[in-house]
Each structure stands twice: as C-alpha cells, then as structure tokens.
Amino acid sequence: MSTLHTVNKSPFATGSLESCLAHCKDGDAVLMIEDGVYGGLAGTAVADLVQQKAGSVAIYVLSADTQARGLAADKLLQGIKGVDYDGFVDLVADHDRTQSWL
C-alpha cells in the first residue's frame, strides 16, 4: 500500500513540499509538477531535505514542466527521475491513492 504525492507549488512560495515530505511514508512516491519542479533543483534551501528523503521515497519531476522552466537535467538533484505525461499516468496507476499537496 503506497501513495503518490503530487506537489505543484514552488517550495520557496509555500510549505507544501515540506509538509508533503513530512507526511510521506517509506515506499511512497513524490511527483513534482508545475512550479513544484523548482523543489527538484540542486543547491537550494530545500535541497538537503529533498535529498535526504530521496533514500526512502522515489522522487520524480514532470519533464514538460522542468523543460518549460529551463531547468536542465544537470541542475536537478541526484536521483530525481524525470517522467513524461505517460509516466505520470503510470505512477497514478501503480499507487493505491494519489494525494495532491496544493
């Protein structure tokens, strides 16, 4: 039993990513979408927090959203995987529930 969490807000604007990570269980997945993808950047104030969680939780970014914002793959934290829209659908299907952090 696991949950897919989606985060669509920048971690520098709201506490949604932090709150999401604080409520994730081991084996869950976090997918950053829209402005949420800024949470995947390396060298930010939340990078350590995300990196730390990446050990027990799979972390994804929606590639269309990173590309739109000009975030190249080498700017993202190690271990974060990019997915396309089909990958998004697969993630939803592969988890028992989806929870949006708005």
Binding site: M1, T3, A22, H23, C24, K25, R97, T98, Q99
Partner: peptide, 17 residues
C-alpha cells in the same frame, strides 16, 4: 504528524483542499 501520516496512508480516497 506521524499519526496524521498513518491516517492518510489508511485511506481509499484522499481529497485535497
């Protein structure tokens, strides 16, 4: 917070606002 995480993980459907 830990109990809240358990409650969330125990649901069939989560609706977020």
């Amino acid at each position: 917070r830990a109990e809240m995480a358990d409650i969330m993980a125990d649901q069939d459907v989560v609706l977020s606002f």
